[in-house]
Design a binder for these strands. Structure first.
Length: 305
DNA sequence: GCATGTCAAGTTGTG
DNA sequence: CACAACTTGACATGC
């Protein structure tokens, strides 16, 4: 099990900056690009630092935050790297991050946020989503990330039609996106058994989120879901990717969906131990949760042997 | 200094 | 029907 960190550190001095479209739009064009250069260069430096820090802590994967280059695809204030004064420096930092990650076997991924929806019946929503995916694929290419992971989106009262729209849109995606795209089961609409046929049909890997599966059961056991999702990766000769989190208020609490600060060791599926796979840890305490988990797993291993 | 409201975008379920 | 939740913060503003 290779453990992965999502986007941010809690105690380590790695910080990502951002800005808003409103602020950028108020600035004149030169000032706008100056501000963006500052932020993008700082974020590229911190991305390299993030991967180096992950390596130092024994973390084997890192999910890169979507707004690494904030508002890059915005219709009004969007921009390209070559428009920024430090564009070349920034590109070199991304390349350095990629080669560091490769050298130390840190797996990199992306997880576009809730606005990226490929199953929507609204064409403008799908078009914006594709633009955002192309931006993330450009970043992924630059740093050598092999995964851009997405939820299936809304149901719109008819799951079958939604999935059919999703299939067609995915099939027409540009290659840099398509070759990295994965689908993840969510906790309200699409379960593993909903997504498996789509993934098998399109040769798309399925990211198995065991917490979502426990919130939205589908008749499959955790072991079956792990194995079936795993096959979608292994068929392509790739390492399986999964997500793990614990409920903030426990499994008996009112709503199990919100994530806790740390991972309850009991929430780790026993079939995941000693399995060759990447597991992103979605815990609010970020790297602290992973460090605690690593030592707890060591203890469990020692007790077993 | 510090507290507070805002942030491009979608969809669903709750109060 | 408005609003929070979803990986969350971080930033700009106003006191």
């Amino acid at each position: 099990m290779r453990l992965g960190l999502c986007c941010l550190f809690k105690d380590e001095p790695v910080r990502f900056r951002t800005t808003t479209a409103t602020v950028l739009a108020r600035l004149g064009h030169p000032a706008q690009l100056l501000k963006l250069t500052e932020i993008c260069r700082s974020n590229a430096e911190n991305l390299l630092l993030a991967v180096q820090t992950a390596q130092r802590l024994g973390i084997g994967a890192f999910r890169i935050m979507s707004p690494l280059f904030p508002r890059m695809t915005h219709p009004l204030v969007g921009y390209r790297l070559d428009q920024l004064a430090d564009g070349e420096t920034i590109a070199e930092l991304l390349a350095a991050t990629g080669s560091y990650a490769r050298r130390h076997d840190i797996r990199l991924s992306f997880h576009p946020d809730q606005f990226v929806v490929l199953s929507s019946p609204r064409p403008e929503v799908v078009a914006n989503s594709i633009r955002e995916l192309e931006y993330q694929a450009f970043l992924a290419e630059a740093v050598g990330a092999d995964v851009i992971n997405l939820h299936a989106g809304g149901v719109y009262g008819d799951k079958k039609s939604a999935l059919q729209r999703l299939r067609h849109v995915i099939d027409d995606l540009p290659q840099p996106v398509r070759s990295r795209l994965t689908l993840e089961n969510d906790d309200i609409s699409y379960s593993v058994s909903d997504l498996l046929p789509v993934c098998e049909n399109l040769s798309l890997p399925l990211v198995y989120d065991v917490h979502h599966h426990r919130c939205l059961p589908d008749g499959l056991s955790v072991e079956e879901a792990t194995r079936l999702a795993g096959e979608t990766w292994h068929r392509l000769g790739r390492e399986q990717y999964c997500h793990l989190s614990s409920p903030k208020a426990g499994w008996t609490g009112r709503d199990p969906k919100p994530h806790a600060d740390y991972i309850e060791p009991e929430d780790i599926p026993s079939c995941w131990f000693d399995r060759a796979m990447t597991v992103d840890i979605e815990a609010k305490a970020k790297e602290l949760a992973i460090l605690r988990l690593i030592s707890e797993i060591d203890t469990i291993r020692r007790d077993k042997s």
